[in-house]
């Protein structure tokens, strides 16, 4: 084999990479962006949610609901635990194994804290309330976790439990198409509705 054949192949490979980069790295993303922006602009930009005429977050990204001291504020529905404090620039999970002693201790501690904060027995606290999500920005909680927060939220806002109960029911989403994923409650949307009621 003479040396010119391999060099010719490398040269062809280089040109192939360049032209395919133009097709798949420039034309493709720009075309998809064009269609996405014109057809679904709101979603393509991150499903932003407004209150008082300004952006207050994204309905797909969870947030903290803390008071000025950085502690969970009893007036709001609280999200799942997050090691990053719902920072979208540091997504990811604890990475601890299902039998890990550190995780076990964290779970037990969180369970006691959640039960005390909401004034419910520890046995009433569901799994999602004591475990970190995969993204650390999970926007949802289970209906069970929303349920145990109702009495505390109602008391802190001077509302009747029935009023708050109704809000939770209105914001409980079924599985998608009835069978995909889980039932869930979007915390940001629920709290914004709560804010409307409280005024």
């Amino acid at each position: 084999m003479n040396l010119r054949t391999p060099m010719r192949t490398v040269w062809a490979a280089f040109r192939a990479l360049l032209v395919l980069t133009v097709v798949t790295g420039v034309v493709y993303p720009l075309a998809v962006t064009g269609v996405a922006q014109s057809a679904f602009g709101h979603r393509a930009d991150g499903s932003l949610v407004q209150a008082d005429g300004r952006d207050v977050g994204s309905s797909l990204i969870g947030q903290t609901w803390n008071d000025a001291n950085g502690d969970p504020d009893p007036r709001w529905f609280q999200p799942r635990p997050s090691h990053s404090g719902y920072d979208p620039t540091a997504t990811g999970s604890s990475q601890l194994g299902a039998s890990d002693p550190t995780l076990l201790a964290t779970v037990e501690e969180t369970r006691a804290a959640v039960a005390a904060f909401n004034g419910v027995p520890e046995s009433a606290v569901p799994a999602d309330a004591v475990t970190g999500s995969s993204s650390a920005i999970d926007p949802h909680v289970s209906p069970a976790y929303a349920e145990i927060q109702v009495a505390r939220v109602a008391a802190a806002n001077g509302l009747s439990p029935e009023q708050v109960e109704r809000l939770v029911a209105d914001h409980t989403e079924d599985r998608d198409l009835g069978f995909l994923g889980e039932e869930r409650v979007n915390v940001l949307e629920l709290n914004l509705a709560l804010r409307e009621v409280v005024g």
């Binding site: 799942r80 604890s94 039998s99 799994a127 475990t131 999500s133 994923g181």
Partner: peptide
């Protein structure tokens, strides 16, 4: 797993909208 048992389910590192099946 012991931690999952304590939590009442294996939801550590999982998203609520997908659940365990998804």
């Amino acid at each position: 797993g012991t931690a999952s048992q304590a939590a009442g389910g294996g939801m550590e590192g999982k998203e609520q909208r997908f659940g365990i099946g998804g």
